[in-house]
């Protein structure tokens, strides 16, 4: 399931949710500031390493990567085909004809690799955060960080709602397949068409119905009673580990800023990797 919490007793599990939110924000800051594939791969490897240290089974990670990789690669390829950087250096022609040509530039290739590492890094980081922190704790952390309580509760129930929707859609898919419906197999266009034309109607109907039922359940449990004076059963407390982790994270953030466009510039997309590649190919500006 997409938002499953995997209970564990590692030091990372025991960190305060606010620390984990800072970890998440740090990763996002790095992913935003950097564009260089080498720098971003380091972040990606760090997230993967952390996931293993947290005891997340390897197959959980691989199945997640498998699920998102087509989307990421597809998106990055499109970006590569249609982006033309200033002052580009041609690497080779992917297609070259009278009517249609697709040049591959050194710059776009490097940028695409960076983008792939960036997207995978962000997604894995979100996934890791949810795997080692119960959603209720994240919400509590956010509320303690002065986010509005109603936002927090809305987020909790949304996360509670996602597995229900996934399950409902699985059932719809099964019911349709039992009536000879072909979901399009591996052909993306056919699959999309089948999904849009057939599965959408029951999916929308059922999700509206479900959303209504959940709204009823929330109301009948006093959700809107006095939201600002609500009790949170769980208490949060910072420990020594949290302070150490936050210091490390802030230092990393500082390093990120230092290597970004604003200062040294090694981490940007025309930073370290592009310089290395150009050097290897003997390209001089």
């Amino acid at each position: 399931m997409a938002f499953e919490y995997i209970p564990g007793k590692t030091v990372f599990h025991r960190l305060d949710p606010r620390t984990k939110i800072v970890f998440f924000l740090t990763t996002i800051v790095l992913e935003v500031l950097w564009g260089d594939p080498i720098f971003l791969s380091v972040v990606l490897v760090a997230v993967l390493l952390l996931a293993r240290l947290c005891g997340v089974p390897r197959n959980v990670i691989t199945s997640f990567v498998k699920a998102v990789i087509f989307f990421i690669v597809g998106y990055c390829m499109l970006t590569m085909f249609f982006l033309k950087p200033p002052n580009p250096h041609l690497l080779f022609w992917l297609v070259r004809s009278e009517w249609f040509s697709l040049p591959i530039y050194v710059e776009t290739l490097v940028q695409m690799l960076g983008l792939m590492a960036k997207m995978l890094g962000i997604l894995l980081c979100v996934r890791l955060l949810l795997m080692i922190t119960p959603v209720t704790d994240i919400v509590l952390g956010l509320v303690k960080m002065k986010f509005p309580v109603s936002f927090g509760i809305a987020m909790t129930t949304t996360f509670g709602y996602v597995p229900v929707l996934i399950d409902e859609n699985r059932k719809i898919g099964e019911a349709l397949r039992s009536r000879g419906w072909k979901s399009g197999g591996y052909n993306v266009v056919k699959k999309l068409k089948a999904l849009l034309t057939e599965m959408l109607v029951p999916a929308i109907y059922v999700s509206f119905k479900r959303a209504n039922e959940i709204a009823i359940a929330l109301e009948s449990k006093g959700f809107s009673y006095n939201i600002s004076d609500r009790t949170f059963v769980k208490e949060l407390e910072f420990t020594g580990n949290d302070y150490i982790a936050i210091t490390i994270l802030l230092a990393t953030c500082f390093f990120g800023v230092l290597t970004s466009d604003m200062f040294l510039g090694y981490g940007t997309f025309d930073g370290l990797t592009l310089t290395l590649v150009k050097g290897l190919l003997g390209i001089h500006d």
């Binding site: 119960p134 709602y161 479900r210 449990k221 006093g222 009673y225």
Partner: peptide, 20 residues
């Protein structure tokens, strides 16, 4: 359709929490 929280414990405490 009436289970709205991510864990059994959170589900059971949800109502009393709302009522402070």
């Amino acid at each position: 359709s009436q289970l709205v929280c991510p864990s059994v414990e959170a589900e059971i405490s949800f109502g009393p929490e709302n009522y402070g």
